[in-house]
């Protein structure tokens, strides 16, 4: 899996690093890294329901922030755990546009072993950057 958790950034909270060659895949794995804080085993989330998301932002890190915030929104508002099915980030007229299909299911306390609820995504050290031949992001979440 192209993500790992970072211990030395946030004492009270959780931080993760995601790296991938493809920007779209990096966004998708950032969702997995987020979900893997909420629950122990993300493969336990079945693809039963579907949600469509369209977001735009002036910068990639702001776009990722808004996207991960949506995942937290569905977790509380609809009791849904979601993963990315398809996702595309495009640049249109100076703005970044994200279109994604998310698949998942309602929280099932019998099958989903809960870990930590997340309050919010933070801007602390948030970055989406292009390295030699891959993209990476660091995200710190408030739990």
């Amino acid at each position: 899996m192209p993500y790992k958790y970072l211990d030395n950034i946030a004492t009270s909270d959780m931080a993760f690093l995601v790296w991938e060659k493809d920007l779209n895949a990096m966004f998708a794995f950032a969702v997995d890294a987020l979900l893997n804080i909420l629950i122990e085993d993300i493969s336990a989330v079945r693809a039963q329901g579907r949600q469509c998301v369209r977001l735009e932002a002036e910068a990639l890190d702001l776009l990722l922030y808004a996207f991960l915030d949506k995942i937290l929104f569905y977790k509380d508002a609809e009791a849904l755990f979601l993963r990315v099915d398809t996702l595309e980030v495009e640049k249109q007229q100076g703005k970044y546009v994200l279109k994604a299909q998310l698949k998942g299911e309602r929280i099932d306390l019998d099958r989903h072993e809960l870990y930590l609820d997340i309050k919010a995504i933070t801007f602390h050290q948030l970055e989406v950057s292009r390295r030699d031949d891959f993209w990476q992001t660091v995200v710190v979440v408030d739990v």
């Binding site: 702001l62 309050k119 919010a120 933070t122 801007f123 602390h124 408030d142």
Partner: peptide
């Protein structure tokens, strides 16, 4: 959490552009 998240994003859009306030830390 959502109220804080919503306004944090909104303030970042206007802080420098509209009110000329320097951003030392986005949080």
């Amino acid at each position: 959490h959502q109220v804080a998240t919503d306004y944090l994003q909104m303030f970042l859009r206007i802080m420098e552009k509209k009110y000329n306030l320097p951003v030392y830390d986005r949080q």
